[in-house]
Simulated assay, not measured.
Amino acid sequence: MKTLDRLDTSGLEILTRAECLHLLGSVPLGRLVYTAGGLPVVRLVNFAVDGDTLVFASADGEKLRAAERGDIVAFEADTVDLERQLGWTVTSVGHLSVVPADEAEQLARQIRLRSWAPLPSPRLIRLGIESVTGRRLLPWAQRPHD
């Protein structure tokens, strides 16, 4: 499919699932969106892509409780270059779960997670990606012009 066949009404390129997962794997930080006390919460987390899942660490708190409940959450990551007017954004939706301790030890050796904030006694949490969507702003020369 040609790129121009995959444009949304704003002229942004609609990304495939594979492209979304690849781009997610290219950045270390994203935003976890979940509900706490009936209100939306957005938290910045370091993460890694592990197949069709995202993995991040959390200390005891609302994120861990959301994972213990198996809550449905959203996750967003992006890169934007305002000066060159380039960028992309990817949003994933799925259920959270706590990675069992025996699996977490092995997984921690395979992926590289560095937290931007100190985490006492971190636990690994997995987001099973059930849907993923993404958009990319094309370089000026590739954009459709009227």
Results as ranks from 00 to 15, higher is better:
47 F>V: 00
41 V>K: 06
70 G>K: 05
116 W>M: 05
87 G>R: 04
14 I>W: 01
86 L>M: 07
79 T>G: 14
109 R>M: 08
127 L>I: 09
84 R>F: 11
58 S>G: 06
103 E>Q: 10
49 V>G: 03
74 A>E: 03
22 H>Q: 14
91 T>D: 01
143 R>S: 06
69 R>W: 08
144 P>N: 10
146 D>C: 12
1 M>T: 08
93 V>S: 06
3 T>G: 13
24 L>V: 00
138 L>Y: 09
85 Q>A: 14
86 L>F: 01
33 V>D: 02
19 E>F: 00
105 E>M: 07
45 V>M: 05
14 I>T: 08
25 G>D: 05
69 R>A: 12
119 L>S: 02
64 L>K: 09
48 A>G: 06
129 I>Q: 07
8 D>A: 03
76 E>G: 03
146 D>S: 14
101 A>F: 05
90 V>Q: 01
26 S>K: 09
33 V>W: 01
139 P>T: 03
71 D>T: 05
121 S>T: 11
89 T>S: 15
88 W>E: 02
109 R>I: 04
3 T>I: 14
96 L>F: 06
44 L>V: 10
86 L>K: 03
17 R>I: 07
23 L>I: 03
135 R>G: 12
37 G>V: 07
99 V>A: 03
112 R>L: 11
115 S>Q: 01
17 R>P: 04
80 V>I: 14
62 E>F: 06
76 E>D: 02
141 A>F: 13
91 T>K: 04
134 G>Q: 08
28 P>V: 07
35 T>L: 14
145 H>Q: 15
138 L>V: 07
